[in-house]
Design a protein around this nucleic acid. Structure first.
Lengths: 224, 224
DNA sequence: TGGAATATTGAACAGCGGTTCAAATGTCGA
DNA sequence: TCGACATTTGAACCGCTGTTCAATATTCCA
């Protein structure tokens, strides 16, 4: 966080200033996160972000090198939250099934929460190469942690072997997709959505291990 | 498709010309679809699309009113394919479970197929208002068709009641998310991905109807 | 209080990218 | 072959948007 080159001795005053700067920096990130979720990175203008943060557009550049960096820190913050949730369940001592449920629920909240929620971590492609590799690395850490957890569930519950990579991504897809359709004004609360989603992802639609008749491997309809 | 104002009588020659124009129009849409999937709508430039379609940038405007319209037709085509798949299973006479499996598989192919696949239908927000409403309407028709099918499955198989709207969107999320991670050069073929995904979505992770201990409604870790 | 460092502003800049356009070329029926 | 119409081109246009900058205001320590 502290990016100030520590050449000068930090007097108490300086310290307070820096703190105030960091606070403002966080406000900006929150505002940017909101705008990004509303319009997407490409559509969000610096002037929009500035307005949402209630400062002038030029002033943004006093806290960040540019739009890229704002996006970068948004993503970084979100991923940190998710990694933290992953880590905290690891020490919770529950069964793998319970821990997975906790992680999935936390994921929904991290994305959708109206105050702190961000979906910026979905726009990786918008980052320049150097920043992108850092983020992708962190994202992969989260994904592989989740994958390992899913692997544990499969092992503990003696479920039929499946490719955990694809299952992980299926879950991430279902979770991340919520930003595309969830609206706070809508009928469902974040809590309800998280509940229903995890229920579905954990339990699945059918009671049998294999989803019914393995129908029609041959192509049918449209252009399969 | 035929947008030519039908004031003039169509001579056989005109007809052939129009057909040739339509063929080119389709080539452009295919090329645009590829570019959109690679870079996303915002990052895709008209000059890129033109290059991919092997024509000059200015010439694009002889076939489409602008970038918006290209996206529009891409989305329209994709949705038509999906609606067709939905309709064709309806008359296939299989059980609801089988039909759902078919639709999910077809969905993956429609998105990921290397020749015809498009993911443009995910970028609804980029459209201007008038075009957007048309597309959203069609997309909703697909979604509600899928939702109905899922409802039938729940009813036929006597599964525990859940909110079909959220389940539908969970499935759509898992399916549509594939564009974010699937790479043709990667280890898995489209067929394998479709198979694993539908297996997961149909059968679910666990054998029991309710995914294990309903762990910890209380908040834990991170900022839930 | 004075002065140095920090914050803040809004106008100006720059270039990227969608679009337009006049001109050249190709196509087809008569 | 001629004329009408479709097709194609590439340069020029222009508005939008990220960014810069010089000037002004604010903050805080001595």
């Amino acid at each position: 966080m502290s990016n100030t080159s520590s050449l000068s001795i930090e007097t108490p005053g300086r310290e307070r200033l820096r703190r105030r700067g960091d606070a403002r920096r966080l406000e900006i990130l929150r505002a940017a996160g909101r705008i990004f979720r509303q319009r997407g990175y490409a559509q969000a203008g610096m002037r929009d972000i500035a307005a949402a943060a209630e400062i002038s557009s030029g002033n943004l550049y006093h806290y960040f090198r540019g739009k890229h960096e704002i996006l970068y820190f948004c993503q970084d913050r979100t991923l940190d939250t998710m990694l933290q949730a992953l880590a905290s369940t690891r020490s919770s001592g529950g069964s793998a099934l319970e821990r997975l449920r906790q992680v999935l629920t936390a994921h929904v909240f991290t994305i959708l929460d109206d105050v702190e929620g961000t979906a910026a971590h979905l726009e990786v492609d918008a980052l320049p190469a150097d920043l992108r590799t850092t983020i992708i690395c962190k994202r992969d850490r989260y994904e592989s942690g989740l994958r390992r957890l899913i692997g544990e569930v499969i092992h503990e519950e003696r479920l039929p072997q499946r490719d955990p990579r694809i299952i992980t991504r299926a879950m991430l897809g279902a979770l991340n997709w919520t930003v595309r359709w969830y609206r706070p004004q809508g009928p469902a609360s974040v809590k309800m959505v998280a509940r229903e989603l995890t229920d579905f992802l954990m339990g699945g639609l059918t009671a049998s291990g294999d989803g019914g008749a393995a129908g029609a491997p041959g192509s049918q309809g449209g252009r399969t």
